[in-house]
Simulated assay, not measured.
Amino acid sequence: MTTAAFSARIGPTAQALATIKNRYCAPPSYAPTEQVQSHMDCPRCKSRLNFTVLVSGQTSGRCVASDCLRWSMQ
């Protein structure tokens, strides 16, 4: 299965997590050297998705739109 085909099958929360982890949690440590607080376009509604990546590699995020994406310590 290609990356594009896989991305089309997973949900928006998993898409956001994968994008963030791929950008900030690169091998070999799979964690950033310092805490990251940033934002990106929400994959579901295209609003602003604010997120935090801890030095342990755990992430939390929340879309500014009500009833949209949010997760804690994934």
Rank of each mutant, 00 (worst) to 15 (best):
Q58Y: 08
V53P: 03
S47W: 05
M73W: 15
Q37T: 09
V64W: 00
D41K: 11
F6H: 02
L54R: 12
C42H: 03
P12I: 09
C63M: 10
S29R: 02
V55H: 00
L54N: 14
A4S: 09
I10F: 09
F51G: 05
F51I: 03
W71D: 13
G61I: 05
P12K: 09
L54M: 05
T2V: 03
A4K: 08
R44L: 13
S66K: 15
I20R: 04
Q74G: 10
S60A: 12
G11I: 02
F51E: 04
V53K: 02
Q15A: 06
L69I: 09
P27G: 12
P43E: 01
S72D: 15
S7Q: 08
Y30H: 15
S38D: 15
P12E: 09
N22W: 07
A14R: 06
P27S: 10
G61R: 08
A16Q: 04
C68H: 06
E34K: 11
C63E: 09
T52K: 13
C63H: 05
Y24M: 07
Y24N: 03
S66V: 10
K21T: 13
R44M: 11
G57R: 00
P32Y: 01
C68Y: 06
R48D: 05
T59G: 09
L54Q: 14
L54G: 10
T13A: 15
G11V: 02
K21P: 01
L17C: 13
Q74N: 08
M73D: 15
A18M: 13
P43K: 00
T3N: 10
P43M: 01
V36K: 01
A4D: 14
A5V: 09
L69S: 05
D67H: 12
G11P: 08
Y30C: 08
V55T: 14
R9T: 14
T13S: 11
S7F: 08
S7H: 05
L69T: 06
P28V: 02
P32E: 07
H39S: 13
A31Q: 11
Y24Q: 02
L49C: 04
D67C: 06
V53S: 06
S66A: 11
S72M: 11
T59K: 03
Y30L: 06
I10R: 11
R70A: 14
A18P: 03
I10H: 04
A65W: 01
A5S: 12
G11L: 03
A14V: 02
N50I: 09
Q35K: 15
G61P: 12
P43W: 00
R44N: 09
A14H: 00
N50K: 14
A65M: 11
R44Q: 15
A65H: 05
R62I: 14
L54D: 12
D67G: 08
N22K: 12
M73P: 04
